[in-house]
């Protein structure tokens, strides 16, 4: 368990990680920008737990707020105004990072 890297209001980009393993980061936010809404605490890594490991050490979990128009503007004009999604820290990059 490491100290939390982000705080409320930080702009972040969600990593794009392909592969068939079990992840809790939905595809529609991968590669997209959002803002940290809150730090939720530390939780076991679900990607490791899904293959029988302990998922320890625990990883920082955040709620990240996305703009519906940013995510889905090509799909619909009636999208939700904002979408809050729980994302584990190892999926989050500082916006300046070049993923």
């Amino acid at each position: 368990m490491t100290a939390q890297r982000f705080t409320n209001g930080d702009r972040v980009k969600v990593a794009e990680i392909t592969g068939r393993r079990h992840v809790r980061t939905p595809g529609y936010i991968q590669g997209r920008h959002g803002v940290i809404e809150r730090f939720c605490g530390y939780f076991p890594n679900p990607e490791e737990r899904s293959i029988g490991l302990t998922g320890l050490p625990k990883i920082a979990l955040y709620r990240v707020r996305f703009s519906g128009a940013d995510l889905f503007k090509e799909l619909s004009s009636a999208v939700a105004d904002s979408i809050d999604v729980e994302v584990f820290e190892h999926w989050l990059r500082e916006v300046e990072d070049d993923i």
């Binding site: 809790r24 980061t25 939905p26 939720c40 605490g41 939780f43 679900p46 979990l61 709620r63 519906g68 939700a80 105004d81 904002s82 979408i83 809050d84 999604v85 729980e86 994302v87 584990f88």
Partner: peptide
């Protein structure tokens, strides 16, 4: 009204 959807993706 502004609509905010909460996607329950992990432990909350």
């Amino acid at each position: 009204l502004s609509i905010r959807v909460h996607d329950s993706t992990a432990d909350m």
